[in-house]
Design a protein around this nucleic acid. Structure first.
Length: 104
DNA sequence: AGTATGACAGTCA
DNA sequence: CTGACTGCCATAC
């Protein structure tokens, strides 16, 4: 277990999110056992560019808002990826977010 | 070792 | 509903 294992855990959980589903930082943090470290989850995903193919577009904040889209290469990229999986986006918010929310 | 930052979450105005 | 502040955890400098 390295000190960066936290990142690995985040990546692992994010990769576990099935297509057409979305998850929140808080749930992931809770799954990691840190619960209150939702901010750190975002930090981990911030380094996701250093890792291979992390479906970070499926991770949104508690409101289902695509807060992280600004960190993608293209703002439309995250939205397109989600819509491609059947997730409708309106004003950067996930439609029927609660139904599509994936809970570990 | 202490300070600053961060793709959050929760609460208050 | 939106905006601002605080609290928590981990990393970077």
């Amino acid at each position: 277990m390295s000190k960066t294992d936290f990142f690995t855990k985040v990546y692992k959980v994010v990769k576990t999110i099935p297509p057409g589903r979305v998850s929140t930082y808080g749930l992931i943090a809770n799954k990691l056992g840190t619960g209150l470290s939702a901010r750190t989850v975002g930090w981990a995903l911030n380094a996701c560019h250093n890792d291979s193919s992390i479906p970070a577009h499926r991770v949104v904040n508690r409101n289902g808002i695509l807060t992280g889209k600004h960190h993608f290469k293209g703002f439309e990229l995250m939205r397109q990826l989600l819509e491609n999986e059947g997730v409708k986006i309106d004003d950067d918010r996930v439609i029927d977010f609660e139904s599509k929310l994936w809970k570990p």
